[in-house]
Amino acid sequence: MPQARGWLTRLMPKIIDRRQVRALIARGAQLVEVLPAEDFAEEHLAGAINIPLKELDERSAARLDRARPVIVYCHDLQ
């Protein structure tokens, strides 16, 4: 089952809590809010950038540094 093996070797995104967010930011992580631009304009975590989920592609992701951790978030568990 080559397809299954491929799945297992992929690096799953990790669910983290607030304490881990702060620790990662201290290590240079990039914060990305994936909500629409209007939500981001109203309020966002200090230092975050906005890449709405509907606009997330190779071109928009080029704003991010692949060598540093990335933290994505939205409003809550939606």
């Binding site: 909500l35 190779e58 540093r68 933290i71 978030y73 809550d76 568990l77």
Partner: peptide, 24 residues
């Protein structure tokens, strides 16, 4: 929404992606 964004980034080759599920 954020887990889907994380997986999309993973598909674009990002290897150190985290989801702050509790969010804003």
């Amino acid at each position: 929404m954020s887990p889907r964004a994380a997986w999309r980034l993973e598909s674009l080759g990002f290897r150190d992606v985290h989801v702050y599920a509790a969010g804003k």
